[in-house]
């Protein structure tokens, strides 16, 4: 009986551990600094997490489908640069759909390579990280990109606007999170993503078009990246062409923190959002404590390792690994 209870606790920890950690964490920071739970602070954190968060939503699909996407950072730079450049050339109304089209074409290309040609996703997206970076540099001629008339464009609404007092980036992040969460948990497509990631062979043997599902996860990922690029471009109205550099791994960190397994088949949008928020609030909490932004890197490291470790430990029923 004792064993049963112990296992029960282990299971609860494994399933909801990240949520519990999040709540504990929030309480500790709130006790340490009253400012932390002020509405405007919380809204500020979510807003600044929105870009990373939107990308993480897409990558969640890819990871649950059993693959990796290391190209999202470089792709985000691309979409930011492209939309800024086209803004002055063809106007924002056309620039936005054009940017979405181009970004999603890249996503489709990756999806084709990984889904239909069945190439290893780590290497493909690593290659695409480099290739898209090259594409961005070529597009921008190596220069920073700026909108000429920063004051006179409605384009800034996505990154800087507010609707009913709520910052637009938060609305976009929340809206996408809700829609994609429904897609993943409630639709036949979402079910198939879990099946393909959980056991690709069994999915094929059940008549699920594995290649098409994998393709779609990358398409969704690139759509999210385009949204992130839009937010980024609209927020700053100008950008370096390396703006997304390194974000692929931060995004992956958030997804893993949320509990998605790199082997595929597990994870949820809700947990990814929690993962993103934890990263955001750590950064914010540490800043409020007067620590520099880079301290969060170290804390993030420890939290990721601990989170995954506890998850694994709960599943295997013992703390230390059995590796000889």
């Amino acid at each position: 009986m004792a064993e049963l209870t112990k296992r029960g606790i282990g299971e609860v920890l494994a399933k909801q551990g990240i949520l519990i950690a999040f709540v504990v964490f929030m309480i500790v920071f709130a006790l340490a600094n009253q400012r932390f739970i002020a509405i405007d602070n919380i809204s500020g954190v979510i807003r600044s997490s929105a870009i990373l968060g939107v990308m993480a939503l897409g990558v969640t699909f890819v990871v649950i489908g059993g693959n990796l996407d290391l190209s999202v950072g470089s792709m985000m730079s691309f979409s930011t640069i492209v939309v800024l450049d086209l803004h002055d050339k063809i106007g924002p109304t056309l620039a936005i759909p054009a940017m979405f089209g181009l970004t999603m074409a890249l996503g489709a290309f990756i999806g084709f390579l990984v889904g239909y040609l069945k190439l290893n996703s780590l290497i493909v997206t690593l290659g695409m990280l480099s290739a898209i970076h090259g594409l961005t540099l070529t597009w921008s001629g190596g220069q920073n990109m700026d909108i000429a008339d920063k004051a006179g464009t409605w384009f800034s609404v996505f990154g800087q606007g507010r609707v009913a007092g709520v910052p637009v980036p938060i609305l976009i992040f929340a809206g996408l999170a809700i829609v994609l969460s429904l897609v993943l948990s409630k639709t036949p497509f979402g079910r198939k993503v879990y099946a393909v990631g959980g056991n690709g062979k069994a999915a094929t043997f059940s008549g699920i078009p594995r290649a098409r599902i994998v393709f779609m996860t990358y398409l969704i990922s690139s759509f999210c990246v385009a949204c992130a690029g839009l937010l980024q471009a609209s927020r700053s109205l100008g950008s370096q062409n390396t703006v997304g550099q390194g974000m692929e791994l931060e995004v992956l960190a958030a997804v893993i923190l949320g509990g998605a397994s790199l082997l595929g088949g597990s994870g949820t949008i809700f947990k990814t959002v929690i993962g993103v928020l934890i990263l955001g609030f750590i950064q914010n909490g540490l800043l409020l404590m007067g620590l520099a932004f880079y301290v969060q890197y170290v804390v993030t490291w420890l939290i990721i390792i601990l989170a995954v470790w506890l998850d694994i430990a709960a599943k295997r029923g013992r703390f230390w690994s059995q590796i000889a």
Binding site: L249, A253, Y294, Q296, W301, I304, I305, W320
Partner: peptide, 19 residues
Amino acid sequence: KTGVDAFIVTLGSMLGYRG
């Protein structure tokens, strides 16, 4: 000691060491 995959371990320490 933890049995966590090297990809995740070093992804974490990539951030941590940079910190």
